[in-house]
Design a protein around this nucleic acid. Sequence first.
DNA 1: ATTCGTGTGT
Length: 849
Amino acid sequence: MEEGACVHSPMIKVGLQHDLYLSNNLLSLYAKCFGVGPARHFFDEMPHKDVVSWTTLLSAHTRNKHHFEALELFDMMLGSGQYPNEFTLSSALRSCSALGEFEFGAQIHACVVKLGLELNAVLATTLVDLYTKCDCTVESHKLLTFVKDGDVVSWTTMISSLVETSKWSEALQLYVKMIEAGLYPNGYTFVKLLSMSSFVGLGMGCGKVLHAQLIRFGVEMNLVLKTAIVDMYAKCKRMEDAIKVYNQTPECDVYLWTTIISGFVQNFRVREAVNAFVDMGLSKTPPNNYTYASLLNASSSVLSLELGEQFHSRVIMAGLEDDIFVGNALIDMYMKCSQTTANGVKAFRGLASPNVVSWTSLIAGFAENGLEEESFQLFGEMQAAGVQPNSFTLSTILGACSKIKSLIQTMKIHGFIIKTKADIDIVVGNALVDAYAGGGMADEAWSVIRKMNHRDPITYTSLAAKLNQRGDHEMALKVITHMCNDEINMSEFSLTSFLSAAAGLGTMETGKQLHCYSVKSGFLCNSVSNSLVHLYSKCGSMQDAYKAFKDISETDTVSWNSLISGLASNGHISDALSAFDDMRLAGVKPDSFTFLSLIFACSQGRLLNQGLDYFYSMEKTYDVTPKLDHYVCLIDLLGRGGRLEEAMGVIETMPFIPDSVIYKTLLNACNLHGNVPLGEDMARRCLELDPSDPAVYLLLASLYDNARLSDFGDKTRKLMSERGLRRSPRQCWMEVRGKIYVFSAREKIDKDEINEKVLFFITEIKNRGYPYQENEDKLYHAEQLALAFGVLSVPTKAPIRINKNSLICSHCHSFIMLATQFADREIIVRDRKRFHFFKDGQCSCKGHS
DNA sequence: ATTCGTGTGT
């Protein structure tokens, strides 16, 4: 180094400074050995400068990350009349890229074109990098096709660009092409490729193959590469493999420590993350902003405010509280761990210039704390502050829309998404589908799905789940067909949703097919098994439900709840109650659903005292606070047991505002026990809350009828029709070969009349020459049925199976049910609200309103 | 004589 300085002075003395070649060499030497300052000094003293002189100084600035000065030099150079060459341009572009100076970069790009340097591999590489970093993917990918003979660096940059823009399969294709072109990928190539291997659709396989390939290619291991491999295994939930790689060499820096810590956090091993942090301190590696961000994230993942606050104090001690990454993690932590939004807001206000992540965390915090309207308002404030939402922000806001079913907000955001082309992101598309489906606009959800570039299991699963929530199980099952046509495989989550749809409809056939699929595809996890218990219960087959239950390796609260409620709703009251004892013995904690089933079971089974015991023990013994639903069950229990006044007392003293359901429940009980005054009172209260509920009028009329007050009964019915109210059409449906057939009765029909019609139907069938034999199932057309009964509206022309087991509910004789599937057992038919148990031609459903 | 690409966080 000293040598350079020695050569300098004699050279000026002998007047050789005009020798440009030597001066440029010296300038380069100065820049490399003494830094940009002295080089700049030397440069200023040069009487003659050429493109190499300018470029040497400029590239030195770029190399030393003095990007702003580098661009200033570029300006000065052009001002002095000196044309840049490819070397100058690449350095200037690199500075633009580092500064995010998109405009300036585009101008230099124009320069590149003007000078005819478009096909230069190095320049094209730098431009790809620039455009990718400036989010200008279209330009970047146009350039990808330009270069013919690039080196490893240009190929790697192109691959990086594709990875950065989430074009994973294209990145992998380019990697294969690169090898085919005879170039060997190096550490840089693998670092970038590894960073994408944890993403959806590629899975664990990809990362492991890349790890194998880099060993096979003999790529030299370094700390950066090691970090990338550790990160890959951690993100693929293979923490043990990550640790194995981590232990292969003793080298470790703050990056690797942070990767290890965040790896533990991502794998929900918070204790080990904290231990790693302690080890890091022992190894004298000071944590940086990223490390603290990971640790704060660890705190929020276990919802520990205490841990979060401890790290917050460390952050303050390290002087990192102004850092944007730490600040964002603080917002997230306080929003998730504290009861109010106040601390999160405080953390947000502490940031000098909040970025899109800060705003998104703030908005998500409000939405998660039930303050959706405020989150919409913040979304507006964010844009007013000049921060553009990203896909995280949009999916967060759409999540809030879905939660409170705000269609207006959804449509607003949809407009924004179309305008900004944010719908390219599948996460945004999925959130939009979810919001529309949640708000009841299934058609709009389908339209979004059709317009999406790609769909994944989540797209269809969330749609099916939302359709289920709204009770449209038929449409939910139709999603399966679309999903198959789209060649999207079901996940365990999809299966859970579809099984729940099948359960909702009580379709045994579809349910069984889904059951087969889940076994074959190895998705028989807890949530799927629990759904199976629910499904078979809903289909009335407790044998199958119990079989599914026994197959569950680790029964949880949901499993037991499904079993208990299945037994209870299928009339196996004592089995339901003893299942609860088994649940306690198995050490599984009951929750509010468990008690709902238990009290319901007692109410059905006329086990008044036992039901009361369950109700009063739930809070005392099991620490489960009764909700309004539990009180409704309690009123039903007391009411059916004839303790009407006591039930009324409970309604008046319970800690909830009574709703019309609870009054209706008591009204029904009054009807059973013939208590006219209390029933009238209940009906009055119901109508105050909802004057347009036909069920209330019908219950009241029935109460009058039974009390031999038919005049009042008729008056009530007349009042109902005067108010334009109609009995909601009775519907029932049956399943034939996996298809659902809905029947609805148009009007009230006499029981004897119906029995007559069944006989007539069978006679008709015989008379018309259709084959009919006793005890034999035959297929008939639905319209033949409609013809025979006259009162049925049958929405399908598909064949329906009928035999003499076709039954009519003796209690709710306003509709007809055809149950053939259970002909060999006790017969159970489902309608929209409840089950009807037929035994010897008698229906056991009581008090049908 | 002067140019290009890598890892930790929502």
